[in-house]
Design a protein around this nucleic acid. Structure first.
Lengths: 146, 146
DNA sequence: TGCAATCGGAACGATCCGATCCGATTTGAG
DNA sequence: CTCAAATCGGATCGGATCGTTCCGATTGCA
């Protein structure tokens, strides 16, 4: 129940990109890496994935770089998670299809996972890059759990 | 963005336990294992964790066994996930406290993760063992994502 | 035409998770 | 009271995934 560090890095990088004129300014992976503290090779790999997912546009060659392909307000955490880690699926039951989980026909739980997935995805889709790039929220810090 | 297989196993086992007279009948890990298809050693390990978390009561000795410590309607997926995988924390930022993630003071994203965690936890807390033990839901199957 | 800077893919290492095995503890029967 | 059976608990081993690093292919400008 934890998303990988790569996803966290990707979010931080995209937020940094959004802060640069809303991502309209062209920048490169190196700049983002030294600005966010993410290791350069890792940042390059993330850029590749994000470009493949269509979240950013990458231009090769001298003076090339990357750029957000959409306004920050239209990019959500759900998009980032799916771009980096693949589809949001809590269990292997729902995405691998029918790779029997040992209980086969007796599994009454499986139909419920989809509802959970939808709820989780909805929670992630409710947070956009624009809101992340803004100042720290005024809401109380609310601890993770007592 | 995927919970471990152990959690899935635990859910299936608890649902099987709930189906036996609402978990009031005393049973053992071996019976649950062969009923759910979970490997026996793994099932025993899960029983240990669930007992440590207080979700089930375990009795040692001949004729002993395990039993749900609470009614199935009061046990949620959030409880199971936390019992098996530890606290629900999407990123290492929020649970490890201050083990600098490289961006330190510049991290404007961190305060938002707590909101995401709360949303995800709420989604998991909305599903109880009682509803999982019931027949397949009448709601449409709703695919994971188009 | 040559060079420089960039993205893209492939190989290595480390860490975490899952499965198996063995020992400690406890109850019931003789 | 002693023995024996059955259970939970911890420790060890193997596998897989993730994260990092290095190298090659491609592109645009001078």
């Amino acid at each position: 129940m934890r998303l990988s560090s790569l996803t966290d890095y990707a979010v931080v990088m995209l937020v940094a990109a959004a802060r640069h004129c809303g991502g309209l300014a062209r920048m490169n992976a190196t700049l983002l890496a030294e600005e966010t503290g993410v290791p350069l090779p890792t940042a390059q790999k993330l850029v590749s994935r994000l470009a493949a997912a269509g979240l950013i546009d990458s231009t090769r060659g001298t003076g090339g770089g990357i750029r957000l392909s959409r306004p920050p307000a239209t990019i959500t955490l759900a998009d980032v998670v799916e771009a980096v880690e693949g589809p949001i699926a809590m269990t292997s039951c729902v995405d691998a299809g029918d790779h029997d989980c040992g209980i086969a026909g007796n599994c009454r739980v499986k139909p419920h996972w989809n509802a959970v997935n939808q709820a989780v995805r909805g929670a992630l889709a409710g947070v956009t890059l624009a809101s992340l790039a803004a100042e720290a929220p005024a809401r109380e810090p609310m601890e993770v759990e007592a």
